[in-house]
Simulated scan of single mutants.
Amino acid sequence: MKFKFTWAHGIIIALVCFILFICFMVFSIEFSKNSFDLVTDEYYEEEINYQQEIDATKNAAKLKERPEINMDSTGILITFPKEFNLTNTKGRFLLFRANSKELDIKKNFLDLSPQNTILIPNKNKILVKGRYTLKLYWSKDKINYQMEVPIIWK
C-alpha cells in the first residue's frame, strides 16, 4: 500500500512542529540559568523622584571636571575633582549587577580620603567578572549630582 501525502497531512505536521517549537521556547526560557533581578525593590518610590535624578544628571554633565573612574586589581578607584572634598560633599554609590542582586555593592555615604578618592576594594574577590553599572550620587552646596558609568570587571 502506497502512502499519499495530502494537504491535510501537511497542516497536521505544521501544527505539530509549531506546538513543539512553542514548548521548546517555554521550557528553555523557564529553565535557563540566567536570572535578572529588579534594579531596586523600591521601584515605585524611586520612579516618583525620577525628575530629580534627571536634574542631577544634567548638573553632573555641566561640571568642568567630573569624577574619574579607574580600575586595577585592587578595585575600583573613584577620584573626585578638587572642588569636592570631605567637608563639603555628601553622597552615596551603588555598584549594580543586573543578573545577581547578591553581587551588588551599596554604600550610603561617601568616605572621601584626603586625596578626594574612594576605593571600592576587591578584597576576598567580591567583584566577579562581568558587567556592572556604577551609580554615583553626591551633593555639594545643596546641588545634587548623579553619574551612571558602565563597568566591565575583568
Results as ranks from 00 to 15, higher is better:
Met1Pro: 12
Met1Ser: 14
Lys2His: 12
Lys4Ala: 05
Phe5Asn: 11
Thr6Val: 01
Ala8His: 09
Ile11Trp: 06
Ile11Ser: 07
Val16Pro: 00
Cys17Trp: 08
Phe18Ile: 15
Phe18Thr: 14
Ile19Gly: 01
Phe24Ala: 11
Met25Ala: 09
Phe27Val: 15
Phe27Cys: 12
Asn34Tyr: 03
Phe36Arg: 15
Asp37Met: 09
Asp41Gln: 10
Glu42Gln: 15
Tyr43Gln: 14
Tyr44Cys: 00
Glu45Ile: 06
Ile48Glu: 11
Ile48His: 06
Ile48Leu: 03
Asn49Glu: 13
Tyr50Asn: 14
Gln51Ala: 04
Glu53Asp: 14
Glu53Arg: 13
Thr57Met: 10
Asn59Cys: 05
Asn59Trp: 06
Asn59Ala: 10
Leu63Ala: 05
Leu63Thr: 10
Arg66Asp: 05
Arg66Tyr: 00
Pro67Gln: 13
Glu68Gly: 08
Glu68Cys: 09
Ile69Gly: 01
Asn70Lys: 15
Asn70Pro: 02
Met71Ala: 06
Met71Thr: 14
Ser73Ile: 11
Thr74Arg: 12
Thr74Cys: 01
Gly75Ser: 09
Ile76Arg: 04
Glu83Gly: 08
Glu83Cys: 01
Phe84Lys: 10
Asn88Pro: 08
Thr89Val: 09
Phe93Thr: 04
Leu94Arg: 07
Arg97Gly: 08
Ala98Met: 06
Lys101Leu: 06
Lys106Thr: 06
Lys106Ser: 05
Phe109Met: 03
Phe109Asn: 05
Leu110Ser: 03
Leu110Asn: 04
Asp111Glu: 12
Asp111His: 01
Leu112Asn: 02
Leu112Cys: 04
Asn116Asp: 09
Ile118Arg: 02
Ile118Thr: 05
Pro121Lys: 11
Asn122Gly: 01
Asn122Phe: 00
Lys123Phe: 06
Asn124Pro: 11
Lys129Leu: 09
Gly130Arg: 05
Leu136Cys: 07
Tyr145Met: 00
Gln146Lys: 08
Met147Lys: 07
Glu148Asn: 14
Pro150Met: 03
Ile151His: 04
Trp153Gly: 09
Lys154Met: 11
